[in-house]
Design a protein around this nucleic acid. Structure first.
Lengths: 208, 208
DNA sequence: ATAACGCTGTTATTTTTTTCACAATTTAAT
DNA sequence: ATTAAATTGTGAAAAAAATAACAGCGTTAT
């Protein structure tokens, strides 16, 4: 199979999310140009992306929504449910927990960590909060491969290293620092300050 | 001036953030290959990016850190301070507020909005929370051009339209929906569910 | 039956982005 | 002064991504 680019992966996830929000018994099929209108991408791009996961539509009816959701799900999620570890139960951590809760059957934050005694050993959104000292133990025991870092900047690097040691393969990092970890581990940075700066730049230059 | 791509803008913001965290009196200059090591980009890319804002380094000493920060700041921020409006003071809203507070002198969230009576008319991180009914009034009065949407998915579209009407030029959207608004307004989506799905995908496929 | 329609799948083309590679430049050493 | 060393700035090449364009195919209408 030809390798699929990171950008395509992201769009595929967008298509899936959109289709899930669209479930209605009235419409069974959808055309690439409709997806194009809804997403802002071009229809050619969408056909190409869908082609890349091996799914085919009908030249007359377009794509069968339910089947496409299923194919996208198999591609994006794989077979097995994936447990996720979240470190840091401040506002960011709680936000991720809230957003993900019950939304994606194959993804569940099964363990969270903090060092605040007021949070440790409590349950948030159905997710147990452990002391951060137990990070490696729990991650290894539950065979968790996905980690989310939602701690202050000065603690992020150490958390990342411990995650790497515990066998985590992908990290979603909300701390505004670049993480230094062994290659082979995927890191996605979501610096909120950067996001505001970027939007502010375009807001400013658009109106000039 | 040749147009600068969105990707370059994002990297420039990363360089600035990195350099700001680096302020020490010991080191006055930095080479592109050092920035490359720190960021994971190539040195050629970094030189090209810096070139694009018209800043020049010395072939022997590299880039003067303070001057580079200054040039980046002028390019990214412009002259005037930019006020920002935040709608939704749940976990995401509070997280953005916390992250940005005091970090970027030219960017300040000067007005926030919610419809929860427990939050309205209170001050969070030095930022007044108004009732969302007053959104247009305050945004117009304070001439705010940058908006952050941190409300539930089903309220996001309506907030976006009201922002657009009030003259907002750039929107940072944390709600997991595609916003439909007039062209000319820049929208940056930061769907947290999507971010987790993406990392989970790469974590899964990396270990196969 | 046949023709017309409007879509998908895919190849070709164009555009954008990144990397390569090296002349030019500045400083320090001799 | 001259040379050596190491970097920047940048044109050229390569790679990646997006777009265009259209053959071919089911379906429907006639």
């Amino acid at each position: 199979m030809k390798t699929i680019s990171e950008k395509t992966i992201e769009r595929l996830i967008i298509y899936r999310g959109l289709l899930l929000n669209l479930v209605s018994d009235k419409v069974k099929n959808i055309f690439s140009h409709q997806l194009a209108t809804m997403t802002g991408f071009t229809s050619a791009q969408i056909r190409r992306d869908i082609m890349s996961i091996g799914y085919s539509g009908s030249p007359v009816r377009g794509y069968d929504i339910q089947n496409l959701i299923k194919s996208l799900g198999e591609f994006i999620d794989g077979e097995e449910k994936q447990p996720v570890a979240l470190v840091g139960l401040g506002h960011v951590g709680r936000a991720v927990l809230d957003y993900l809760k019950g939304r994606r059957p194959k993804l569940e934050i099964t363990a969270s960590f903090d060092d605040d005694p007021a949070k440790v050993d409590r349950v948030f959104q159905g997710c147990m909060c452990y002391h951060v000292n137990d990070l490696e133990k729990i991650i290894e025991k539950e065979n968790i491969k996905v980690g989310i870092i939602a701690v202050p900047a000065d603690e992020a690097q150490s958390v990342a290293e411990r995650m790497a040691n515990a066998g985590i393969k992908g990290i979603l990092n909300y701390a505004p620092v670049k993480l230094n970890i062994p290659s082979g581990i995927y890191v996605e940075n979501r610096d909120m300050t950067l996001a505001v700066e970027k939007v502010a730049y375009f807001a400013r230059t658009a109106s000039e």
